[in-house]
Structures are given as structure tokens and as C-alpha cells.
Design a binder for these strands. Structure first.
Lengths: 146, 146
DNA sequence: TATTGTTATACTCTATAACTATA
DNA sequence: TATAGTTATAGAGTATAACAATA
């Protein structure tokens, strides 16, 4: 933890920002072919998979959207048979949202397809370069969580 | 370049995909506070900065959107004084779209602000970890371009 | 009263289909 | 006829403000 910001750090930030944003855009595009779920919908399903059943408010907080937006997204997912909404037995104001089995399968397939795309590209790298990416992945994850 | 796909490569792909998508989402959110340009608009300006004056069709192709979508985006940018539209002197059907000076300045400021956000987070990392990210950035960029 | 969720309303981004102007 | 761009229309995603139901 250096006490002051160095020029080298600023340079890394700039390069990393561009690289991450562009690769993400590319990955998003890869997803969009032959699929009918938006990134918003997919992200919501992933969050439910990770945390299990959540209330609408919790789900909105995880996805960092306002409750009315999440109400809409959940409505779309419910229409597609990917989530269920049930009233909380102990607090009638709350609604519990959970994945259906169809959603679990769909998430698995989507992940497989996108991982395959990226793994295919990893084959063009040397093993040293793959090692660097392997080390970088958890650091990127921590950056996001701070 | 290994001749076959290893399980380790597939695992790296999965971790990397999640990390990149999530960090990108975070970066996108960072941008949206206190600014009035959408990512679509910013992306369009960046493309014009990179390639110079383009026709609407070319611009739509670079941004991977349909022409009617780009017509709208360009209209918004024109309202904000960030691009100009001029008829092509040799082909009256075509419209040439170019950045204004205000747009060039705005791009520079936006970049600075977002880099600062990421650089601030880099301060929580060790110098070894920063070195890994520095090495990873160009590899990520190559992954996208393949 | 405070909290949870929904409805009403509005704006951006995106698309396809239909149209206009030019080549 | 073919091409470049715009207009018409529609749906998703987002927000804020106002409302209903429950605690």
C-alpha cells in the first residue's frame, strides 16, 4: 500500500480500464448471438444462483438498480418461467424470488458457451501468459468489490 | 500453444470471464454518476476520435448497431454540440460525422476521471499484484482483438 | 409511521419495416 | 434498381414520484 499515487499506477489504470471495457463488450456481443436473455436478465439470474432466494429489495441492491426496475425485470423472468415469486410467510410485504430448474439449466449452458469462446482464444497464448491471467482474475475480482 | 484444450485453461476462462464482466459493470456504473453522456454516446465519440470523420453507415458498423439507432445517437450528440453532420460533397446521400472541439475536451476529462477511480483502487494492492495487472492488460487487449 | 413492493410516467437504447432522396 | 439515411413503431431497461399493503 504505497502512501502516494505513482504515475506508473495511473498508467496501469488507464490500460486496464480500456482492456477490461473492450473485452467485456466483446464477451457481451458473443452472448447475444442465438440467445434471448438480456445481460440484465442474465445478471439477475446469476445473482439468484449465487445467493439463493432473495427479496425484491435485496435483489435490486445486489444488481444496483432501483426497486421499480427490478420489479420489471423479475416480471419478464417470471413470464419466461425462469423465476418464481412467493410471499414471505412471516412478512406479507416481502416477496421471495427464486430460480426455477429451467433457469439453472439455462445458466449452465450459457456459461459453457461463453467459457468456450474465451478458452478458444486462450489457446493462442503461451503458458506464461495464461499463468498471468490466472493470477490476475482474483485481483480483478477484488478490485470490483472494494 | 498447446495442441489440446486443458481443464486448467477452461477454469481460467470461467474465472476471467466473470471477473472482467463484473469489473466492467462497475466501471460503467462509475461513469454514470455526475455525467450526462451514456456509454453509447461515449463509445461513439471514442470511435470518431480514433478513426476521424465517418459516414453514418460506417459509424454504425464500428459500433455494431443498426443505422436507425446510430441516427438517433448522432442526433443526441449533435444537440449537445459534440458532433457535426455535413453532406458528403461527392455523394449527396452520405452524411459525414465529425467531432467538435468540445467533444475532444470532454473525452479527455472523462478518461481522466475514470482512470482516477481505478487508480484509487489499485492503491489497495501490493506492488506484486499491480505488476500482475500491468502484465495482464496487454494480454486482455490481444484476447479481444483475435 | 416506516417499510416493501407496485404502478404511473418519462427518457434512452435498440431493433425492424417503411419511406425519401440520391446514384 | 440499389444505396444512404430517416421516420414510424415497438420493446427493454432505467429512473423518480406517487400509491397500496403490511408491520
Amino acid at each position: 500500500m504505497p502512501p502516494t499515487q505513482t504515475n506508473a499506477d495511473l498508467a496501469v489504470a488507464g490500460e486496464l480500464r480500456l482492456a477490461v471495457m473492450r473485452l467485456a463488450r466483446r464477451l457481451r456481443r458473443e452472448r447475444s448471438s442465438g440467445d434471448d436473455l438480456s445481460l440484465t436478465q442474465l445478471g439477475t439470474l446469476s445473482t439468484l444462483e449465487l445467493h439463493g432466494q432473495l427479496t425484491l429489495k435485496e435483489l435490486a441492491a445486489h444488481e444496483r438498480v432501483q426497486p421499480p426496475s427490478m420489479t420489471k425485470t423479475v416480471a419478464h423472468l417470471e413470464e419466461k418461467g425462469l423465476v418464481t415469486r412467493t410471499a414471505d410467510p412471516t412478512d406479507g410485504r416481502q416477496v421471495l424470488i427464486a430460480l426455477t430448474q429451467a433457469a439453472t439449466l439455462l445458466l449452465k449452458e450459457d456459461r459453457k458457451r461463453r467459457d468456450a469462446w474465451l478458452a478458444q482464444r486462450l489457446r493462442h497464448l503461451s503458458s506464461d501468459e495464461i499463468d498471468i491471467l490466472r493470477a490476475a482474475a482474483p485481483i480483478l475480482e477484488r478490485l470490483r468489490q472494494q
